[in-house]
Amino acid sequence: MKIRVGFGFDVHRLVEGRELWLGGIRLEHELGLLGHSDADVLIHAICDALLGAANMRDIGYHFPDTAGEFKNIDSKILLARTVDLIAEKGWRVGNIDATVCAERPKLKARIPEMQEVLAHVMGVEADDVSIKATTTEKLGFTGREEGISAYATVLIEKD
């Protein structure tokens, strides 16, 4: 079996008038993430990590923010398409280890739901999707609640 690892990162600004989507689920919050799609930073980081592991460039290359077809798109669709793209090269998802960095909202109670949703989209077990949440202790743009960032490391496999 051949394996590869990939790393992904994404960040979006928090603004009024947008829904907050993280890990494929909608969270109640007074601010949402600004972006061409639904701006789900966790899914975008995972997509970048998967594409990087398969040596297939990045999310912006495959799903450009200049394309109208991706305007306000549900990022779960982008994740499913990413899994299909790597499968075309013979790769499948092994596991995901991701971290969301946000002061608010607190995410701990919603992580199991995110794991289930993302696992379903990628066709893996929920146990193969690790999601952690942290803050920056009030430091930087995240600490000032100006945005949310996410990091993802993935392992992909090929027979």
Rank of each mutant, 00 (worst) to 15 (best):
M1Q: 03
M1P: 11
K2G: 03
K2V: 05
I3G: 02
I3H: 02
G6A: 08
F7H: 02
D10G: 12
H12V: 07
R13L: 06
L14I: 15
G17V: 00
R18M: 10
R18V: 12
R18G: 04
E19Y: 11
L20G: 05
L20P: 00
W21I: 14
W21E: 00
G23H: 00
G23F: 04
G23R: 11
G24Y: 00
G24S: 08
I25D: 09
I25G: 09
L27T: 06
L27D: 02
H29A: 14
H29P: 00
E30W: 13
E30I: 14
E30M: 07
L31W: 12
L31P: 00
G32I: 08
L33M: 13
G35D: 12
G35V: 14
D38R: 11
A39C: 13
A39D: 07
V41I: 13
V41K: 08
A45N: 10
I46T: 11
I46C: 12
I46E: 08
D48I: 09
A49P: 12
L51H: 07
L51E: 11
G52W: 05
A53I: 03
M56V: 09
M56A: 13
R57T: 12
I59L: 15
I59A: 04
G60E: 11
H62E: 11
H62A: 14
H62I: 13
F63W: 11
F63V: 07
D65C: 13
D65F: 11
T66V: 15
A67Q: 02
E69W: 03
E69R: 15
K71T: 14
N72A: 10
S75V: 13
I77C: 00
L78C: 07
L78F: 01
L79E: 10
R81Y: 11
R81M: 10
T82H: 01
D84M: 06
D84S: 10
L85C: 04
I86H: 04
I86N: 03
A87W: 01
A87Y: 06
E88S: 14
G90P: 05
G94N: 12
G94V: 06
C101K: 09
C101I: 05
C101A: 03
A102T: 03
P105A: 08
K106C: 13
L107Q: 04
L107H: 00
A109H: 03
A109I: 05
P112W: 01
P112E: 06
V117F: 02
L118W: 00
M122Y: 05
M122Q: 03
G123T: 00
V124R: 02
D127R: 14
V129I: 14
I131P: 04
A133Q: 07
A133T: 12
T134S: 11
T134M: 04
T134D: 01
T135M: 10
E137T: 09
G143T: 09
G143K: 09
E146V: 09
G147V: 09
I148M: 01
Y151F: 04
A152H: 04
A152E: 10
A152W: 01
T153D: 03
T153H: 05
V154F: 03
V154P: 06
V154N: 00
L155K: 09
I156E: 01
E157G: 01
K158V: 05
